[in-house]
Design a protein around this nucleic acid. Structure first.
Length: 602
RNA sequence: GCCGGCUUAGCUCAGUGGUAGAGCAGCGGUUUUGUAAACCGCUGGUCGUCGGUUCAAAUCCGACAGCCGGCUCCA
C-alpha cells in the first residue's frame, strides 16, 4: 500500500484537518481521512454543523499546525493499547476501525503534536511540509458507506506541494464550471428541465433537438449497414409483461408506480381500500395494471416471439430509440446525465450460442466507432459481473457462468484496459460498459453491451435448429450511446458547447455589413440551405464587431461576412471558429467545404 | 432517500425589517455600420410556494417544492 509522494502529502493534510477540528471542537468523533484522486477528506461526527463559513477558521488552525512543524511520529502498538487509547477518548469509530485490522497485522499510531490517529501511514516528515492546501466542500457521508449507519460530516479539501499548483488546480475547477453542460445547455438553448413538467424530465429545445436528430441519423445509418431492423414500441405495457421479465419484482423501487385503470380505483375506494391494500393486490397480481417501461427489452422480446424463428433467421437484431422511465432518487438527478426519462439507442440481438462471440465483438466495434467519430478517447471499460453475495439477480448459476465467460473473453479482445467489477452486472446478465468522466470528475456509464441467457429463458424464447429441434436463443442488449440524454450532456462538455459542424445546430451565419447587403446574404443563405446546411442571416443592423461577438458566443462554426467588396465578386469573408479570419473566398467554394465537412461528420 | 447550502426580471447578479435595483436580452426609435459590445427610450418581478412573527417581511421563523455539492442508489 505504498503511497505516492502527493498522496502522502494529502493524507498528512487530512491528519492536520483532524488536528485542527479537534482543537476547535474537542467533542468531535473521527472516522477516517484518506487521500483521494484530487485531494483528501476526513469524516467527523459532531454536534456543530459545518458550513463553508467555518472553512476559514479551520484553515487558519491548519496553518498554525503547519507552522508548528510537528513531526509525524510512527509508533507500533498492541491491540489492547490502541483500544484503551481510543475508548478513553470516546473515539468509538476508531475502536470499530481497529477491529477491522486482521489479527497478526501490525497496528500503528501516527502522532503529530497532540493528535494521534490510528493509521497505517505513510506521511510526510512533518506538518511544515504541507503549506498549499484548501478546504473545498462539506457533505454528508454514511459511516462505512452504508445508509443504515450514522451519517457523518465529510470535509473535502485538496493539497499540493507548491502554492502555484494549488492555484492552477483551483483555476481549473473554475474553468470546468464554465463547461458544465447545465450551464452551456442554458446559454446555447439546447435543453430545458422544467419544474412544472417534472424533475429529471428533459425538454429538448430546437437546438438540442438538432444535435439529437443528427446523432440518431448517424446511428441509423450504422444500424442499416450492420443488419439491424428498427422497430417502435409503446411507452407503457402490462404489468404481467414485467413480471415475466423480472423488472417488476426485482426493480420495483426504481420504477414509477404502476398505472391502474379508473374503474378499479373507484371500486377499491368504495371498498375503503388503503394504499397499502392497493400495493399489496398489485404485488399479488390480483389487480392488473400498466407500467411506464423501465426497459425496452420485454417488448423487443415479444416481437421476436411473435412468430416461429429458424436458425437461418438468426441473428435477429431489433433496434429502437426507445424512451424509458425510471424512478431515480431525487438527490441523484443531475442535468441531462441522470434523469428520470431517457431515450436509449437500444437494440437486442437474438442469436445462437455459437454466434455470441462474433455479435458481441460487432457491438463493441460499433461502440468504438461512435466514440471515435465524436473524438471521445478518454474512457475506461468496466466488465460488470455478479455480486456473489447478492440475491438481486434472476436466473440459474450455470447460465450466469456461461454469460460471464462470454463477456470476459470479449473484453479480453478489446485493445484497451478493462477492469472486472463484481456487483456491476445487470439483473439479467453481465455487461461491458464504457465509462467517461464529466467536467467535475464524476463518472458516467455511456455505451454498454450485455450478454443475457436469462430473459430468453424467462420468456421461453426458441428457434428451430438445423436438427429440426427447438433451441434457446441468447440475447445481447447493447446501446452505443447508452442514453441520448446522458451522451448529449457529456458531449456538450466534451466540445465545450462548440459542436463539430455536422452536429452544430447552426452551421454558418451570414453577417451583412450594412442594410444593402441583407439581400445578398439572404440569397446566399437560400443557396446554402438548398445544399442541406443550417444557416441564418444576422439582420439586426448592428456593427460587424457586435455581429462577430454574437456569432462567437453562439459558437457558430462559420461566420460569413457579406460586404460590398465580397458581393461584387460572389464572395464571403470567412471567419471560422477554429482559425479566425480566413479572408474573402468564393461563396460556392465555402458552401462545398462545409458540405464536405458535414458529409465526413467533422 | 440522507446531510449541508441555495432560490430576487428571460439570463447573470446587487439588495440584513421601512414603497423592489443593475447589466445583458426583448420592444420602439436614431445610426448603415468591415472582424468580440453604436446611442436614446420603453417594457418586464404576488422576491420558489404556503403558513407564522411584526405596525411593517425579499430580509426573521416553520413546512413544502426545486436546484447545487456530496453520500447512498443506478436494470
Amino acid at each position: 500500500m505504498a503511497m505516492t509522494p502527493l498522496e502522502e502529502l494529502r493524507h498528512s493534510a487530512a491528519h492536520m484537518l483532524a488536528t485542527a477540528v479537534l482543537r476547535l471542537w474537542p467533542d468531535a468523533r473521527l472516522d477516517i481521512g484518506p487521500p483521494t484522486e484530487t485531494g483528501f477528506y476526513y469524516d467527523f461526527d459532531l454536534k456543530h454543523r459545518f458550513t463553508e463559513e467555518d472553512f476559514a477558521k479551520i484553515e487558519a488552525e491548519m496553518a498554525k499546525v503547519a507552522k508548528e512543524d510537528q513531526p509525524f511520529v510512527r509508533k507500533e502498538v498492541t491491540r489492547e493499547e490502541a483500544k484503551k487509547w481510543f475508548e478513553s477518548r470516546g473515539q468509538t469509530f476508531k475502536v470499530g476501525r481497529l477491529a477491522d485490522i486482521p489479527e497478526g497485522e501490525p497496528i500503528t499510531f501516527y502522532t503529530n503534536g497532540d493528535f494521534t490517529d490510528l493509521c497505517a501511514g505513510t506521511h510526510v516528515k512533518s506538518t511544515g511540509q504541507v503549506k498549499a492546501f484548501k478546504l473545498l466542500s462539506v457533505a454528508g457521508a454514511y459511516h462505512r458507506g452504508d445508509e443504515k449507519n450514522a451519517q457523518l460530516q465529510r470535509l473535502y479539501g485538496t493539497a499540493f506541494t507548491k502554492r502555484e499548483e494549488l492555484e492552477t488546480y483551483l483555476k481549473q475547477l473554475e474553468e470546468a464550471k464554465l463547461r458544465d453542460h447545465r450551464k452551456l445547455g442554458k446559454e446555447l438553448d439546447l435543453f430545458l428541465i422544467d419544474d412544472e413538467v417534472g424533475p429529471g424530465l428533459v425538454l429538448w429545445t430546437p437546438n438540442g433537438a438538432i444535435v439529437r436528430q443528427e446523432m440518431q441519423k448517424f446511428l441509423s445509418e450504422e444500424l442499416a449497414k450492420r443488419g439491424y431492423e428498427q422497430v417502435f414500441t409503446p411507452h407503457i405495457g402490462r404489468l404481467g409483461l414485467y413480471r415475466t421479465s423480472g423488472h417488476f419484482p426485482y426493480y420495483r423501487e426504481s420504477q414509477y408506480p404502476p398505472l391502474v385503470d379508473g374503474e378499479t380505483l373507484e371500486q377499491m375506494a368504495k371498498e375503503k381500500c388503503t394504499c397499502a391494500d392497493l400495493s399489496n393486490r398489485i404485488s399479488k397480481g390480483e389487480i392488473e395494471g400498466y407500467l411506464l417501461k423501465p426497459m425496452n427489452c420485454p417488448m423487443h422480446i415479444r416481437i421476436y416471439a411473435s412468430r416461429p424463428r429458424s436458425y437461418r433467421d438468426l441473428p435477429v437484431r431489433l433496434a429502437e430509440f426507445g424512451t424509458v422511465y425510471r424512478w431515480e432518487q431525487s438527490g441523484e438527478l443531475n442535468g441531462m446525465t441522470r434523469v428520470r426519462g431517457f431515450t436509449q439507442d437500444d437494440a437486442h440481438i437474438f442469436c445462437t450460442e455459437e454466434q455470441v462471440a462474433k455479435e458481441v465483438e460487432g457491438c463493441l466495434e460499433m461502440v468504438r466507432l461512435v466514440l471515435d467519430t465524436l473524438g471521445i478517447n478518454e474512457f475506461r471499460v468496466r466488465v460488470g459481473l455478479r455480486d456473489p453475495a447478492s440475491d438481486k439477480y434472476v436466473g440459474a448459476k450455470e447460465l450466469w457462468d456461461k454469460a460471464e465467460k462470454a463477456v470476459k473473453e470479449a473484453a479480453k479482445k478489446l485493445e484497451v484496459k478493462t477492469s472486472e467489477e463484481p456487483g456491476e452486472a445487470a439483473f439479467y446478465g453481465p455487461k461491458i460498459d464504457f465509462v467517461v468522466k464529466d467536467v467535475i470528475g464524476r463518472e458516467w456509464q455511456l455505451g454498454t453491451v450485455q450478454v443475457d441467457y436469462n430473459l430468453p429463458e424467462r420468456f421461453g424464447l426458441t428457434y428451430t435448429g438445423s436438427d429440426n429441434a427447438k433451441h434457446r436463443p441468447v440475447m445481447i442488449h447493447r446501446a452505443p450511446f447508452g442514453s441520448l440524454e446522458r451522451f448529449t450532456g457529456v458531449l456538450i462538455e466534451h466540445f465545450r458547447g462548440a459542436f463539430p459542424v455536422w452536429l452544430a445546430p447552426e452551421q454558418a451565419r451570414f453577417l451583412p455589413v450594412n442594410e444593402q447587403m441583407i439581400a445578398y446574404a439572404d440569397k446566399l443563405a437560400a443557396d446554402f440551405k438548398a445544399a442541406g446546411l443550417r444557416v441564418t442571416v444576422d439582420a439586426k443592423g448592428d456593427k460587424l464587431g457586435a455581429q462577430i461577438r454574437r456569432g462567437q458566443l453562439d459558437k457558430v462554426p462559420f461566420l460569413l461576412v457579406c460586404g460590398n467588396r465580397e458581393a461584387e465578386a460572389g464572395q464571403v469573408a470567412v471567419r471560422s471558429r477554429e482559425k479566425g479570419d480566413e479572408g474573402a473566398q468564393a461563396a460556392a467554394a465555402v458552401k462545398d467545404r462545409i458540405v464536405e465537412l458535414v458529409k465526413n461528420r467533422r
